[in-house]
């Protein structure tokens, strides 16, 4: 029933209005407002003053933020890499399983993603706690001393980010691997390629679309993170999200928070636009991507 007419008929307009209006009013317009608020002065009551000002933009461009931006990028980058490294073989394995099992495996991957986010972070906090199981075990095995800490450092933040984001990487890679023609791997093996070479030179290019989708999902959710560094991180593992939350809730400086959020938002949008341009280019060059 997909009508090919490019003109919008009244029925279509009527049926589209509810969701379109809702998302415009509560998603698109608010996102625009964040950009706007960045150019407003702050008022003392935690609100927004009248008139225009570049004070918030100036404050948000302070070089003191640079190390935090850098940390946000590298921690998200490391957790993205870890996710891909694990999700690739897993997506491959899932796609080769019998159909019935694939559904159950996807369910098992989705379940942790659907359990309360705070609870999952909390579970890790108690695991890595000095009185928790992991620490005690490592100390008992002589791999760690009593003075050492597993919590409140960059390693803890990256591990928990990896834990929380892994389903976002597995699902698109599994979806891509499921469409992959595994006969190509056999062909490569018949032509004399080793298992590793066939995997790298045939399978990986074959699931390129899934790889890009997975990296984007994980990386973007990483740069917008603030709860994980707040709970399992320390003072020197703060990410840009922590700074935004602090500006909002501690300093009650909404314009500066908006200025920082705008930079993050524009970065995220740039990544997504670049991706859709890439896909359009690929589609022009030929099918199969």
């Amino acid at each position: 029933m997909k009508s090919q007419a490019k003109k919008v008929c009244p029925t279509e307009a009527l049926l589209t209005t509810p969701s379109l209006l809702w998302l415009l009013a509560f998603f698109a317009v608010p996102a625009g407002l964040v950009l706007l608020l960045a150019f407003r002065p702050a008022d003392l009551h935690g609100g927004v003053g009248s008139g225009w000002s570049v004070a918030a933009i100036k404050a948000a461009s302070d070089p003191a933020y640079l190390p935090i931006w850098w940390r946000t990028l590298w921690m998200s980058g490391v957790s993205t890499l870890l996710c891909l490294l694990v999700a690739l073989p897993m997506g491959y394995h899932l796609a080769r399983m019998p159909r019935r099992w694939q559904g159950i495996m996807v369910l098992l991957v989705v379940l942790p993603f659907l359990t309360n986010f705070l609870i999952r972070v909390f579970a890790w906090k108690s695991l890595l706690h000095p009185d928790g199981m992991v620490c005690r075990g490592l100390i008992a095995m002589g791999l760690m001393t009593e003075e050492q800490q597993l919590l409140y450092n960059a390693g803890a933040v990256v591990v928990v980010m990896f834990y929380v984001q892994l389903p976002f990487a597995i699902l698109p890679l599994y979806a891509a691997a499921e469409k992959f023609d595994f006969g190509l791997l056999d062909a490569a093996r018949d032509l004399g390629a080793g298992a590793a070479r066939a995997f790298w030179e045939v399978f990986i290019p074959g699931v390129r679309g899934g790889l890009v989708a997975a990296s984007l999902m994980v990386f973007i959710s990483g740069v917008g993170q603030y709860v994980i560094p707040q709970i399992v991180g320390g003072v020197d593992t703060e990410m840009i999200g922590n700074k935004i939350a602090q500006r909002v809730f501690s300093d009650r400086n909404l314009p500066e928070a908006s200025a920082l959020s705008s930079m993050l938002l524009l970065g995220v949008l740039a990544l997504m636009i670049a991706n859709s341009l890439r896909r359009r280019l690929m589609a022009k060059e030929g099918p199969g991507v």
């Binding site: 919008v8 969701s19 917008g224 909002v248 959020s261």
Partner: peptide, 30 residues
Amino acid sequence: YATRLQGAHHGLVMLPLVVPDLLMGMALLA
């Protein structure tokens, strides 16, 4: 339908899935 309107509609529906929660919260607060 396969109109331009639906193209924009689709983008608007899918964007919240990608934009970090922090930014959505910030936008609604704004």
